[in-house]
Amino acid sequence: MSSDSTPVPAPAAPPVPHAPRPKSTGLHKGEAVPGVAKVDPIIIADGVRRTFGGLTAVDVDHVEIPRNAITALIGPNGAGKTTLFNLLTGFDKPDAGSWSFDGKSLSGVPAYKVARMGQVRTFQLTKALGLLTVLENMKLGAKGQSGEHFFQGLIPGIWRKQEKSIEAKAHDLLRKFKLDAKQADFAASLSGGQRKLLEMARALMSDPVLVMLDEPMAGVNPALTQSLLDHILDLKDEGMTVLFVEHDMHMVRHIADWVIVMAEGKVVAEGPPLEVMQNPAVIDAYLGAHQEIDLGEITGRYHAEEKN
């Protein structure tokens, strides 16, 4: 997207069908440069580097993710976004660096413990557990289940009560995500978009503090897009922090409170979405060179908003 071909959207809230929600502002201290300190950071990463053979996939000097805000992680393909995601969630080990979540160091903490601390992620390629039913998928998401211990699992009396309350919670979430009609189906029978919804709903079963979404919109048909966006905005209203990777610039602009731009493994810019997108370095590194930012226009999403 180049600034002369598409009008820059007005900062004022556009008249869209759904009620606009205010963006969080004042998240950072001082000038919005790469690595700027945040007023209330939930994740702080220092010197995180990961190389594959000769290729440096991630080399982040310093980055902070603001609490109770929606932060977008953008950058061209191969910028290291997903690798950074994997490192922050313990799915991959960096060559060097330290990072913390909620003030607790996460270096060397395995992925499942990271998740238990309240930092739950989804995947770029959806990982719905195909041969489990939708309801089983949801129940799997709940934390601290006594029936998941080997010996306690043998005696239904121990876990049946907890199972009931987990099931009730799962029903609530499924209703909210409009998957309640599908609860008895195998997850493999869901459409791509429904699987994304299921994955997000499943992540919410654990009452996370920070939800990390890797390309939540990829492969989602436009009819479901709006509901997904609303769900993400709801997370913030409910007090959670959201960090997501996304290629769809319209979505980023629409819901993100803060944007971090990566290129070649480094953080090259960050700031509120509208400012970042006018940053010439960003346009150079990403927006100018790649056409996927026009995806929104092609699919017609937020057309009203754009033209307003």
Binding site: F91, R121, R202, S206
Partner: peptide, 10 residues
């Protein structure tokens, strides 16, 4: 089905 997904759920 997918051990990474289960790991991500803690």
């Amino acid at each position: 089905e997918d051990e990474d997904a289960v790991r991500a759920l803690g």
